[in-house]
Nucleic acid binder design. Structure first.
Lengths: 183, 183
DNA sequence: AGCAGCATGTAAGTGGTTACATGATTGT
DNA sequence: ACAATCATGTAACCACTTACATGCTGCT
């Protein structure tokens, strides 16, 4: 009962779309799940080895040149469905930015403004990226609606952050003005 | 150069509002930073010991009954400002829910609906909590605007999640209907 | 007498990142 | 020839959680 299940899920999920090398699994994950999931090689290769030992994936030759291509097995597909159905661990809610902002009165002058501007710019940039993805021609396969849902999540999140950052910047400006007025 | 800096920051931040025991530090963190930060005892006590060794906090007696009360020192206050000014580590963007939804086509029937409903209900509950906090009488100290900012962040986030969940549930319903019509 | 809450701490384990080591192939 | 990219893996480390162990105090 290895508890590496989240990485296992991501790797099996990637492999469910086609056979590939470990290196390509990484690329597939950063490419398609990138805005809400990442994996490092130090995690992928050991996981792949474990999956192979459990018969959930198998290696297809792969000559000297390319690495060995990994393929999901039927047992692997069953396991993927199991993992998907399992309750998901809630992400640890830890926001280092908010931690700093909460104690904002002790922040060096201008730093709060800087932090908020970074959030605003980051969110706007993310939104641009998302709209570029939306513009991409879609081969309409059955998974499409779910993929769109995750994209939509990113958009909602980015818009919320952008709006919050703008509101907070305005509040900050009011604060500064009041301070100046009082002397 | 210990790298426990995030926990250190949270603990020093809590202690900057007044002297307290380790147990109370935990309570203060879950109470006031709870919706974007948490610490466990296994983290707090060793951190406190390290801070004491560095002269950033000091212990005030604390008889047999209550535990020893910990107080931030001047050096501790300086360190707090340093930590606050440091660039914040970006949280690992890993969303186990989206990971499952992305591969939604392999999810057991009804499970996607279940997941989205949970998100919607959780967000609504969070919003209620936040509005209760807003209603609390505020002693208007200088930190107030920053505290409000972090609360506002939670609200924006919760609204975004709620709206996304509702939209996605509607999209899911459309999908089911289309399936029935064709099937 | 017994339980709930206050209080402090340690040990083991988890899930992950980073850095390192290595080497083949392809393109310039 | 050299650099970039593909490819695989390990070792060390890190932050953190959970579970455990312990004991006191105050209330019922």
């Amino acid at each position: 009962m290895a508890r590496r299940s989240q990485t296992e899920l991501a790797v099996l999920g990637a492999l469910s779309t086609g056979a590939m090398t470990g290196y390509e699994v990484r690329a597939a994950i950063t490419g398609t799940l990138g805005h809400f999931w990442q994996e490092s090689f130090g995690q992928i290769y050991p996981t792949l080895a474990g999956l192979e030992a459990d018969g959930l994936v198998r290696r297809r030759g792969g000559g000297r040149t390319s690495g060995s291509v990994v393929e999901i097995t039927d047992a692997g597909r069953v396991r993927l469905r199991e993992l998907l159905a399992e309750p998901h661990p809630s992400a640890p809610r830890r926001n280092a930015l908010l931690l700093r902002l909460f104690f904002g009165e002790h922040l060096p002058p201008g730093r709060a403004h800087e932090l908020l501007t970074e959030v605003e710019e980051g969110s706007v940039a993310a939104l641009e990226q998302y709209s570029a993805i939306r513009a991409e021609p879609s081969d309409d396969d059955p998974g499409q609606p779910f993929r769109t849902m995750t994209l939509s999540f990113g958009e909602h999140l980015a818009r919320a952050q952008r709006d919050w950052a703008r509101e907070s910047l305005a509040a900050l400006a009011d604060l500064e003005e009041g301070r100046r007025a009082r002397g």
